[in-house]
Computed example of a mutant assay.
Amino acid sequence: MASGGIARARLAEERKSWRKNHPHGFVAKPDTLPDGSVNLMVWRCVIPGKQGTDWEGGYFPLTLEFNDDYPTVPPVCKFPSGFFHVNVYDSGLVCLSILSSGWKPSITVKQVLVGIQELLDDANPNSAAQQRCYELYKKNMPEYKNRVREQAKRYPSRV
């Protein structure tokens, strides 16, 4: 297949599968180009905060950027810059093992999004991406949780 053909074919299948069956509250759809065509290489997503956690009530925007080597290489996953989380860089880039050393081509968009939702409430302080979050997480958990709840309020449902 031509450069990127395998990636686009896989993403077209993932889109079809997602439309048939996806977790409640999640959104994942390819970007639309100015001419109205679909750009399978960039997806606009929303990850809901899990019920019963400090993230509950938030609907967090995330962008997935795929390159022509997908699914051999993982997508780049980014929240808005300044997103408050131990495992998210100030740029918004998500630091998660399944997006780096733990990547397997069999991992689907759905698995990536559910994995990121799990990461929200189950941070990995051993792989901290933001020093200020890490320090609060380790030294002042009540304040960390308060910041998470405040952030969730800034990303309400658009429905």
Rank of each mutant, 00 (worst) to 15 (best):
L99D: 06
L99K: 11
L99I: 07
L99M: 08
S100P: 06
S100C: 10
S100I: 03
S101R: 10
S101Y: 10
S101L: 07
S101H: 10
S101P: 00
S101M: 04
G102Y: 05
G102R: 11
W103K: 02
W103Y: 05
W103D: 06
W103N: 04
K104M: 09
K104A: 10
K104R: 09
P105Y: 05
P105I: 08
P105T: 09
I107D: 01
I107Y: 09
I107V: 12
T108N: 05
T108P: 06
V109W: 02
V109M: 06
V109I: 14
V109F: 00
K110V: 14
Q111E: 14
Q111T: 10
V112N: 11
V112H: 08
L113V: 09
L113D: 01
L113I: 10
V114L: 12
G115R: 02
G115S: 15
G115F: 06
G115D: 07
I116H: 04
I116T: 01
I116E: 01
I116K: 00
Q117K: 08
Q117M: 01
Q117V: 00
Q117G: 00
Q117R: 11
E118Q: 08
L119A: 02
L119P: 00
L119V: 03
L120T: 06
L120D: 05
D121C: 09
D121E: 07
D122A: 15
D122I: 02
N124M: 03
N124Y: 00
N124H: 02
N124A: 03
P125M: 04
P125K: 03
N126S: 13
N126W: 00
N126K: 12
S127W: 00
A128N: 06
A128F: 12
A129G: 09
A129H: 06
Q130E: 11
Q130Y: 09
Q130N: 14
Q130A: 14
R132T: 11
R132Q: 13
C133W: 09
C133K: 00
Y134K: 15
Y134L: 15
E135H: 03
L136Y: 08
L136T: 07
L136W: 01
Y137T: 02
Y137R: 05
Y137G: 12
Y137M: 05
K138A: 13
K139V: 08
K139C: 11
K139S: 15
N140Y: 07
M141Q: 04
M141F: 10
M141E: 03
M141K: 14
M141A: 05
P142F: 13
P142V: 05
E143K: 12
E143D: 12
E143Q: 15
Y144P: 07
K145C: 12
K145R: 05
K145M: 11
K145S: 10
K145L: 14
N146W: 00
N146Q: 11
N146D: 10
R147C: 08
R147E: 07
R147P: 03
R147K: 15
R147W: 04
V148W: 01
V148L: 03
R149S: 14
R149A: 13
R149I: 12
R149F: 04
E150I: 01
E150A: 13
Q151V: 06
Q151S: 11
Q151M: 15
Q151I: 04
Q151G: 07
Q151T: 12
